[in-house]
């Protein structure tokens, strides 16, 4: 039976390497790929009244942009490679949402790119890769 590999993809170079890695695995083992993109969002951030008013429209625009600029090009590419592919586009805390997607999709594996910023920023804000390494419900591969 084909199993799903969830790839975290944000259009960055490391995400690209993660996708390449996932495609190689999928081809070798006959798996399918779920390309997941998470838009950073906290329901506890603070907004001004005009931001509140525009939020719904902005959200539609953001989803539209992510779909066309980030997901669509790579989906076409993966399809051409003959690998079954689906996409998931969500809002939320990046690491938590990725973990939830992996669980919801009943994924065999979660593949993400290393986020790049090491050291100070990661110490303060926590890195997505480190959080997923600890909290992911499925095996995680972190591609450098």
């Amino acid at each position: 039976m084909t199993r799903k590999i969830v790839v975290g993809y944000d259009g960055s170079e490391t995400a690209r390497r993660a996708l390449d890695f996932a495609m190689a695995r999928a081809r070798a083992e006959g798996n399918s790929i779920v390309i997941a993109h998470v838009l950073e969002w906290s329901p506890y951030s603070f907004l001004t009244p005009s931001e509140v008013e525009e939020r719904h429209r902005r959200r539609s625009e953001e989803l539209q942009r992510a779909e066309t600029a980030i997901l669509a090009p790579v989906v076409a590419e993966v399809e051409q490679a003959g690998i079954p592919v689906a996409t998931v586009l969500r809002y939320g805390h990046i690491a938590e949402t990725m973990a939830r997607i992996a669980k919801d999709e009943d994924a065999a594996m979660l593949i993400i790119g290393r986020m790049g910023h090491s050291g100070f920023a990661a110490r303060i804000f926590g890195s997505v890769a480190a959080t997923l390494a600890q909290a992911s419900p499925v095996p995680v591969v972190i591609v450098p």
Binding site: W41, Y44, F46, L47, L63
Partner: peptide, 12 residues
């Protein structure tokens, strides 16, 4: 998610 939450409406 991504829409204005109740928390945000309250704090605003």
């Amino acid at each position: 998610a991504g829409e204005v939450s109740h928390f945000q409406a309250l704090t605003t």
